[in-house]
């Protein structure tokens, strides 16, 4: 599905963010990318859809090498990659629905986009997705009237509107409170599994990565230093990724508090989050 080979990124100021990273994702799984700030997590994700231009290396998605594409071909390729951002990056002054439908911009013509006249199938699946992410009925709300967690749900719906072959998720929870973070992270994982879409998720919260992802890769100063199952994250591995620190409190031995949280979510009427958690 996705094959990254020897990816190098050197910024114009000479800083080398990635020193030849190779990653292969060949099944629909959620891959958490961990590492300290500046380790190259964001650069890695952004190189895949070339929001950041890679210096050398190959990125092959479903048989196409993305690094070799021209602007028009890149736009075609980007339509197949949904991206979710830390700061949600919604168009604040537009409605929720317009933001979700903007996921189809790669497919509709300029004039239809101008008239907000999207195909019937797109509109129906936008409504469906909004319901799925827990925002049913909020389609006419302006994005700047939503809370952080709700905005991120819109961001998720926008990315899934593209019916992507790959989800690129850049620090989805870094701007959210701990509880919302978990709900959002579980929602992303549930949707990725439901749709059989592989997802690359940058994440700071090691415990959350461990409890939700199918696979974890660790970056340190632009090098891949870990690639394995969440259960393989030992204090030694974390020291390798982040440097010396007492890790005993960080590593989760058991998902003991989850039942309690699921109950709380149901009590609040967030049946969907419980569902997301179940899936």
């Amino acid at each position: 599905m996705l094959q990254i080979t020897d990816l190098v990124k050197q910024y114009p100021n000479g800083f080398r963010a990635l020193h030849g990273v190779s990653v292969t994702v060949d099944e629909p799984q959620v891959v958490a990318v961990i590492g300290s700030s500046g380790a190259g997590k964001s650069t890695l994700i952004r190189c895949i859809n070339r929001l950041v231009e890679p210096t050398t290396g190959a990125i092959v998605l479903e048989g196409t090498d993305i690094t070799k594409l021209n602007r028009a071909q890149l736009r075609q390729a980007r339509r197949r990659m949904g991206m979710i951002f830390q700061e949600y990056n919604l168009v604040e002054r537009l409605t929720v629905m317009e933001n979700v439908l903007s996921g189809r911009l790669g497919y509709v013509g300029f004039w239809r986009a101008f008239r907000r006249n999207y195909p019937a199938d797109d509109v129906a699946s936008a409504f469906e997705l909004l319901e799925r992410v827990g925002l049913g009925g909020r389609h006419d709300t302006r994005a700047d009237a939503l809370s952080g967690g709700q905005r991120q749900r819109v961001g998720i719906a926008r990315a899934l509107m593209q019916k992507p072959d790959l989800l690129l998720v850049d620090e989805p929870t870094a701007s959210l409170d701990p509880k919302t973070s978990r709900q959002i992270m579980r929602l992303i994982c549930a949707l990725a599994h439901e749709r059989g879409t592989p997802a690359l998720v940058n994440i700071h919260d090691v415990a959350l990565a461990q409890s939700t992802a199918d696979r974890v890769i660790g970056l340190r100063e632009g090098n891949l230093v870990f690639d394995g199952k969440p259960t393989d994250l030992t204090p030694a591995v974390l020291t390798d990724i982040y440097g010396e620190e007492d890790w005993s409190a960080t590593i989760r031995k058991d998902d003991d508090d989850e039942d309690e949280e699921a109950v709380a979510a149901r009590d609040n009427g967030h049946a969907l989050d419980a569902e997301a958690y179940a899936g």
Binding site: N49, R75, R79, M83, E98, R104, L105, G106, A113, F114
Partner: peptide
């Protein structure tokens, strides 16, 4: 950036 990431053309990025 988010609109660019959906594969929208330059003109549509300006519009939306």
């Amino acid at each position: 950036e988010a609109i660019e990431a959906t594969g929208a053309s330059r003109l549509k990025v300006l519009l939306i």
